[in-house]
Nucleic acid binder design. Structure first.
Lengths: 336, 336
DNA sequence: TTGTACGCGTTATCAT
DNA sequence: ATGATAACGCGTACAA
């Protein structure tokens, strides 16, 4: 294995090890002659400094940690996940940071993930995704001054840096869009009722309605589980109402596709008889008939904000906002 | 910041730093009394060993590196990418390994990626994806005894450990399936003609044909670029042939969907008039009409094999096969 | 059984 | 301008 260290280069270039280090760190004080000798030896033997030693010495590893509170297997087909990593890689890379990814597997490893990554100083800072917002470990890390940024909503106090989608605004925007197209009876198909996501977006939906002087009608609000089946069933029930909605807002594209299916079975034309909007702007949207209008959560922007906030934190720069909110966009296709 | 080190715990527990280290490493020689004192202090102050120091000392970091020869932005919507990471995470995690992901951004950083990750000893081993097979750096790493595994095909010599899909076999399997359904004129839509992938699968297609006593007909072979457009155009041309094919094998689902579109425009029923098979078994398959039969490259198995091979390499265990080949599966839906 | 002392490969602070 | 030397936090050979 490589026994190439600075002392070795020093021996070859007939200088002290300290001089090698200086050359490598571009100390202007060093004599040009020696500098060349060192550089030549470095080049000839292909010396590269040992990152482990550098980390120990410098007290940082130039590595960001991403921890997901999910089983790794559930990540396999999640476009959110790949977009997230891609963007962190891109923007972290610009600042010279590497990325270490971990997923909490067993329950036990929840603890391990925080300890092993951050407190062991394996990484310089953490991006946490899908944490339980009341996780007491976050408070502990926070106390100890470990840099970390939460993606998602943090409900307890504001001692934590976080980045989140503008869920309220996104739902409001989509609802306003439907209103602007003349719809008066707009239905909402959420995820599980307990989810913050479901609640926030419901709030946005409701406030748009009320701002337009429309009454909020609980009969038009359903809760699914993000599956196509649940979208289908919810829409089917909605469309058999005596006063059926003329538009449906579904919290996920897959549920929206289920709704599309239900509309077809009811012989309702989309968007003429019933307009449908999904969420997440997944690749599927372009492939269904009619192509699905969808609210795009801006994952790259989300990840970028989190990454840059974290790096600012790590490097001790002041951070402008503790809680960044990333606006969503509506991608218009045929279904609404 | 945390000044919690073993010396500190040692002071608190009134033992030597070495004893703390021994307790933590479960040295059976240590007196139960002292052991308890140390453990109590560790617990009370929440001490966790510093991974940077451990790495330097132990000469390994228990970290795997994944390097992709792609711009990070191109990763965002790639299901291959997320499946890959998910599986490495899962199987690496079983052996206590973390994962560090890097994507070669600029051309320059190609070099950097190797050096910075492996030779700096930031990671213990590397999984390389989509490398140019003739990359001279691989040979260098190989010489120096750095553990790494290639995902994809390595053409030069066999000094390198690699894992690859059975591209030849997958195309042969798909072709045989079509033959078994009575098809005699089977067309092939590949990717760019220069790609190893395209060539390997073309070979599998051709050998199945010839094994069945059918003549290979170059008129039935087209080359696309993996876009829906290119699939559409290729299929359109194929279907206007005087002796048009009764089945089409497209090297990617998206191209297959383009072909589906062309068939529709030609008023050909799928699969009755023309059968279509795609590759990669993407989520899209279930959402098109008719649902697309697709050859599934087994990415989890691919990643698992690479990961376990790499860990064996790192830990000095003998590796059974230098070049693992992962078989594909055909997922039957409606289109063929 | 426990403590002392050294080295892992750097960077940085001293002297010279 | 350069070389010796001291950390960084840990594991372990050696001494006691």
């Amino acid at each position: 294995m490589s026994e190439l260290k600075q002392t070795e280069i020093a021996r070859i270039a007939r200088v002290s090890q300290a001089t090698v280090s200086r050359v490598l760190n571009e100390d202007p004080q060093v004599n040009e002659d020696l500098r060349q000798r060192v550089l030549a030896a470095v080049e000839a033997y292909g010396y590269v400094p040992n990152a482990r030693a550098q980390s120990l010495r410098a007290q940082h590893s130039h590595t960001l940690g991403l921890v997901l509170h999910r089983a790794p297997s559930s990540l396999a087909n999640d476009p959110f996940f790949s977009a997230l990593i891609a963007s962190i890689l891109e923007h972290g890379g610009k600042h010279g940071y590497h990325l270490c990814v971990d997923a909490a597997r067993a329950v036990h490893s929840r603890r391990a993930i925080y300890e092993e990554l951050l407190r062991t100083r394996r990484v310089d800072g953490l991006i946490l995704v899908e944490s339980e917002t009341n996780d007491e470990r976050m408070a502990r890390l926070n106390e100890q001054g470990f840099p970390f940024v939460l993606i998602g909503r943090y409900e307890l106090g504001d001692g934590v840096y976080s980045v989140d989608n503008d869920n309220v605004g996104a739902a409001r925007m989509a609802t306003e869009y439907l209103l602007s197209r003349g719809h008066q009876r707009i239905a909402y198909i959420g995820g599980p009722a307990g989810l913050v996501l479901t609640r926030d977006r419901l709030f946005g939906y409701r406030s748009a309605l009320e701002a337009a002087g429309l009454k909020y009608d609980p009969a038009l609000v359903m809760f699914g589980d993000f599956s196509e089946q649940s979208g289908y069933r919810s829409a089917r029930d909605l469309l058999t109402l005596t006063k059926r909605p003329t538009a449906i807002l579904a919290l996920d594209d897959v549920m929206a596709i289920g709704a599309l299916q239900a509309a077809k079975e009811h012989k309702l034309a989309v968007p003429k008889d019933v307009a449908i909007i999904g969420f997440n702007n997944s690749p599927l949207c372009s492939y269904v008939e009619p192509a699905l209008t969808s609210v795009a959560v801006d994952i790259p922007a989300l990840a970028r904000a989190a990454t840059e906030m974290l790096i600012d934190l790590i490097e001790g720069r002041p951070v402008s906002t503790k809680h960044a909110i990333i606006p969503a966009q509506i991608v218009k296709r045929e279904s609404a």
